[in-house]
Design a protein around this nucleic acid. Structure first.
Length: 762
RNA sequence: GGGAGUUUAGCUCAGCUGGUUCAGAGCAUCUGCCUUACACGCAGAGGGUCGGGGGUUCGAAUCCCUCAACUCCCACCA
């Protein structure tokens, strides 16, 4: 037999993946005779291509799902993608810009047509790449967060939460890009690391009916006309007597009160703060506490409007006005001091313009009450986080949970189902017709063509938080009880069977964005947690500990790696050094180690396969000893393996089987029973050796699915349905002969002796 | 600024409720070997006052205090 000394993964991987698919091994249906084991994939962005983070994440999921499948469970891994509103919209806008098309020149429908085309073209790439990794997903169940049924589920949930009183419309400071004329999410606002130089101006305000002044410090004199109060710290002796007095705003002489608020820092500037609720987040909140007026002096494009009350500034850019204000203040003798200082200024990621805090109407979910059960369930270990340290982080977030702003000023996403009459009255309903009906009861002569739908879409997470329920169609008409606002679980066979899912494998940075919210939605709609365990992976970094990123160019292309080393090698490479919650410092050496391991197994196979068996030979005594020893060793290691799996210690689990195969099976056992060159082996030993091999291949299969399947079929003739992927998971036997495993014991020494003799001979 | 976490061999990490598998593993390193399964390999070897300091204890990598360094999350200062 002439098999290459090098294992070549490319020749076997595609073949087996196809075989598994053809045989339907990935597909799962509710089966009362079997225990379910379900994982829903964290849906990657449709914009995405596979990166190293996905590799780690999905390898872990595949390992878990394959093991469950072998354990005879009904294993179901649901794949899919996320529409990722911000990221995708940005991508499509960029693509259009390259073609010379401006988003602003398109209608909403035209833009969405482009977006869908884009999605159809690129949205499936990442799933195809997952197949190369060996991911054994139930592809028939692939979902997308903007599939028609998913879309209507999201809308239905919005309406339901609105009717339950959890959703409200309120004012909120958002980041506004004056150049692009759009709102930005916090993620799109960048700060320079060392801050930026700016000037702090000290301006005096006259105290009404007095000759005295009060001096305040500001970076933004152009907002002075929006001032509605001066705030001081209540414990500040310097200003106590001023509290309650009136002060005049320079130039416009508006009377504003001096108020006391703990927010004010006595040590900064003069200890007096001018309060401009329309142009600063904190000021806005002070305004709320003290019932202050909001005077918004800015237009959307960053110019001043007539609310500033100074006609010469109307229509002028805020930075021009700043300069002029400084000049005017100086001339009036009201500018007391100008000092340079370093401050952090937010700039738009897209246009680099200074971001303006802007007050606008947004939609919110009230979080306090709806999240109570989600808080408790993690607290009480009903849901377990791995590693457990994240429980602290989770608790901290839950205890300080803020209302969730779910509206986004974008087009790609689920459009908010709120409909407005011309006078601003609105109704929330699943369809425009229903909304019209509701509105008509208040405005009898309202025509349907006069109502308009809210232009905004929902935050991406406001769709993906339904993922573990929606992928099983939980919100469709058949199962959703809109009177109770609950899902009738008993009617939905799949939810009844697969939900709660077993484990969620995801990155810690989305613990709040996604994981916490899925838990909330689970209790709200299913009265039940969405999953029992949460495995939080680390971040994949490069050798120097830097995050992998496109701009650094330090991320290898996973598909190249698979081509060069094989999927099995890449999978084990990812797992060799990544305990839960720890960052993985990626080094190609790890993948090489995986490849070397595959090669080692391949050569063990070549050795065993090459032996000639003579059934007339009697079994040598020392082979008997070797067999008893290995049997004990295997049982011991399998027990260890199981323990590691139970604790989600994937690296340790892999290391157990790695050492068992390399050290114990290859280096010790095979060397001991190996017949002399050219001589046959007795049948008893041979059969036992093959059966050990099978056991080891099975235990390794979740980690290295391809080579194990290949050798499973190579070591013995088998039917095409007799595949290792559906083979039986090896259980640790009870026969652990500890005395034989202990160094120093008589038996162990005997084995060592035999081995040493063999080595010496070689 | 608020919170959490980490610090054990050159690197990545195990070490559960303090005491004979407590100083471990893999990789890397060094020394021999191209021995008909495998040099993507074999056989062997070296390497750490468990971040610093203090304390509790008969006894601490393991518990307490303190200092230092690093990481992450959240909020952001007129």
């Amino acid at each position: 037999m002439s098999l290459s000394t090098k294992y070549s993964p490319s020749e076997v991987e595609g073949k087996w993946y196809k075989h598994w698919m053809d045989k339907g091994f990935f597909h799962s249906e509710p089966n009362p005779a079997k225990e379910p084991y379900c994982i829903v994939i964290p849906p990657p962005n449709v914009t995405g291509v596979l990166h190293m983070g996905h590799m780690l994440n999905n390898t872990i999921q595949d390992v878990l799902i394959r093991k469950a499948r072998m354990e005879g469970k009904e294993a179901c891994w649901v794949p899919g993608t996320d529409h990722a509103s911000i990221a995708t919209e940005a991508r499509v806008v960029a693509m259009l810009r390259e073609k010379g098309i401006k988003k602003s020149s398109l209608s909403r429908d035209e833009f969405l047509k482009y977006a869908w085309e884009w999605k159809e073209k690129y949205g499936g790439i990442i799933l195809e790449q997952l197949k190369k990794l060996g991911a054994s997903c139930d592809w028939e169940r692939t979902s997308f967060t903007m599939d028609p049924h998913y879309y209507s589920s999201v809308i239905r949930v919005f309406v339901d939460l609105y009717n339950k009183g959890y959703i409200y419309r309120g004012l909120r400071m958002i980041n506004w890009d004056c150049e692009a004329n759009t709102a930005l999410s916090n993620e799109e606002v960048l700060y320079k690391e060392d801050g930026e130089r700016s000037v702090l101006y000290s301006v005096r305000y006259k105290i009404k009916d007095s000759k005295d002044y009060v001096i305040i410090a500001t970076q933004r004199p152009e907002t002075i006309m929006g001032d509605v109060a001066i705030a001081v710290n209540p414990s500040d002796e310097r200003y106590k007597k001023l509290i309650g007095k009136k002060v005049l705003v320079p130039f416009i002489n508006r009377e504003i009160p001096v108020i006391a608020d703990d927010y004010v820092d006595k040590t900064f500037g003069t200890g007096c703060l001018k309060v401009t609720p329309a142009h600063d987040v904190n000021d806005y909140e002070i305004g709320l506490r003290h019932n202050l007026q909001v005077i918004d002096t800015l237009n959307d494009d960053g110019t001043l409007n007539e609310k500033c009350e100074i006609p010469k500034f109307y229509g002028k850019d805020r930075f021009v006005v700043r300069k002029e204000m400084v000049k005017d203040l100086r001339e009036a003798g009201d500018l007391m001091k100008e000092e340079e200082f370093i401050t952090r200024i937010g700039r738009s990621e897209r246009t680099n313009t200074v971001v303006e805090p802007k007050l606008s109407l947004q939609w919110f979910v009230k979080m306090k009450e709806i999240s109570r059960k989600a808080y408790q369930s993690v607290e009480e270990d009903e849901i377990k986080l791995h590693p457990a340290k994240f429980k602290n982080t989770y608790r901290h977030w839950m205890e300080n949970v803020r209302d969730w702003c779910i509206s986004r000023q974008l087009w790609w996403g689920h459009r908010i189902p709120a409909y407005y009459a011309p006078d601003g009255t609105f109704a929330v309903a699943e369809t425009e017709a229903e909304a019209h009906k509701i509105l008509k009861s208040q405005i009898p002569n309202l025509k349907s063509e006069d109502i308009t739908q809210d232009p905004d879409v929902l935050d991406t997470w406001a769709s993906s938080w339904l993922w573990p329920i929606e992928v099983f169609n939980g919100f469709s008409d058949e199962y959703f009880d809109d009177v109770k606002g609950k899902i009738n679980v008993a009617k939905n066979k799949e939810l009844a069977y697969y939900y709660p899912t077993n484990v969620l494998v995801t990155a810690p940075e989305i613990l709040f964005f996604w994981v916490a919210r899925m838990i909330i939605a689970g209790y709200e709609y299913m009265d039940q947690k969405p999953f029992g365990d949460v495995y939080l992976t680390g971040i994949v970094r490069d050798k120097q500990g830097r995050k992998m990123s496109k701009s650094l160019g330090n991320s290898p292309d996973p598909l190249d790696l698979i081509t060069n080393f094989g999927a099995d090698a890449v999978r084990t490479g990812m797992l060799f050094s990544s305990p839960a919650g720890n960052d993985l410092l990626y080094d190609e050496k790890l993948v090489e180690q995986g490849r070397n391991f595959a090669n080692k197994i391949w050569n063990a196979f070549r050795l065993v396969k090459g032996w000639e068996v003579d059934s007339s030979l009697s079994q040598p005594e020392e082979n008997k000893t070797a067999i008893t020893w290995l049997e004990s060793k295997i049982n011991q290691s399998l027990a260890e393996l199981e323990d590691h799996f139970g604790k989600y210690r994937m690296s340790d689990a892999l290391m157990s089987i790695y050492k068992l195969i390399w050290d114990d099976y290859c280096s010790w056992y095979l060397e001991m029973i190996k017949p002399e060159f050219g001589k046959p082996i007795d049948k008893v030993t041979y059969d036992k050796t093959v059966s050990f091999f099978e056991t080891l291949l099975k235990a390794l299969h979740p980690f290295m699915p391809f080579i194990t399947e290949e050798l499973w079929h190579g070591i013995k003739d088998r039917q095409e349905n007799d595949c290792i992927i559906v083979g039986s998971w090896p259980k640790a036997g009870s026969s652990i002969n500890n005395s034989i495993l202990e160094e120093g014991s008589i038996a162990f020494d005997l084995i060592a002796q035999i081995r040493n003799a063999r080595n010496a001979k070689g």
